[in-house]
Design a protein around this nucleic acid. Structure first.
Lengths: 150, 150
DNA sequence: TTCCGTGCAAACAATTTGCAATAGA
DNA sequence: TCTATTGCAAATTGTTTGCACGGAA
């Protein structure tokens, strides 16, 4: 996957996919790029767009996010609860979410290779955890709480 | 965890927790027990209850499911998409869901021991995957589709 | 001139909540 | 009696959809 991390880059991908370049799309892409490396929700992206263009509707944001995902430029991830978050597809990683403090930790995809092989060998199942975070408890929350198990 | 798989058993747990025994609760528990070993949704349980007592509201079902979970009698699991499913807590296992055919496969919790240890050692993170299924593709769907990767 | 893309409003699914009436203990 | 529990309706959250208008190509 060629990284697509500049506005021109993504616009080019859009054009190549037969999509039109519009002002809402520019604004959404700029917001997305601004959040690169983080995990923005559709709502956060929409809020960002609204700073500049208050009339852009959230449905437009969702529609473009869908398109970008179909084009393989971005991925969505469901954290333990709440809305999906988005990140660039070339920034491949898996996610751990603390169910207590909601912090998100990124781990290299290789971390799951052994499990992936085991599920394939023992259960004939091709794991695909890209879109779902692994929930649990981060170290500091685990130590902070003397309470019962999660 | 003492298995609680008979109506009397669960009623006893409820009483012990200071809860009242009511007719809606009996019906919900009977439906739950009838589905033991499967993965019913709140809606399926409600439908079941309605066969006998059409006036029981789904909010009542949700409220009892919450209570039972707080008491440690049942667990909920989020499959890849759609509603949560419920199963008895003593029937501990993890879930694989095929994103194509939606079939659910149960795997022993031990399957994840190595990953659990690795996440703890490398990332100071206590994995708790009980409430979330691992999505992917089951063998037959993987072989059936000559299409692209998930 | 074509359609694609858009804002708007409404629909959606799953779940939660407020509230007054009811019924267990 | 006394308060937990219930049905009902409405609110919530995150996301999707139908539709007619407007603007990119």
């Amino acid at each position: 996957m060629t990284p697509a991390r500049s506005l021109d880059d993504v616009l080019e991908h859009l054009r190549a996919g037969g999509k039109r370049i519009t002002s809402p799309r520019r604004a959404i892409l700029e917001a997305l790029l601004k959040h690169a490396g983080r995990h923005p929700t559709a709502e956060q992206i929409t809020a960002d767009v609204h700073d500049r263009q208050p009339d852009v509707d959230k449905s437009t944001v969702y529609r473009l996010l869908d398109d970008l995902e179909k084009m393989g430029l971005i991925d969505h991830v469901h954290l333990a609860h709440g809305p999906a978050v988005y990140h660039f597809a070339d920034d491949a990683h898996h996610h751990l979410v603390c169910e207590n403090c909601s912090k998100v930790f990124e781990v290299p995809t290789g971390t799951f290779d052994a499990l992936r092989r085991r599920l394939l060998a023992n259960f004939d199942f091709e794991m695909q955890a890209r879109h779902f975070a692994i929930p649990g408890r981060c170290g500091s929350c685990a130590r902070a709480s003397t309470s019962q198990q999660l």
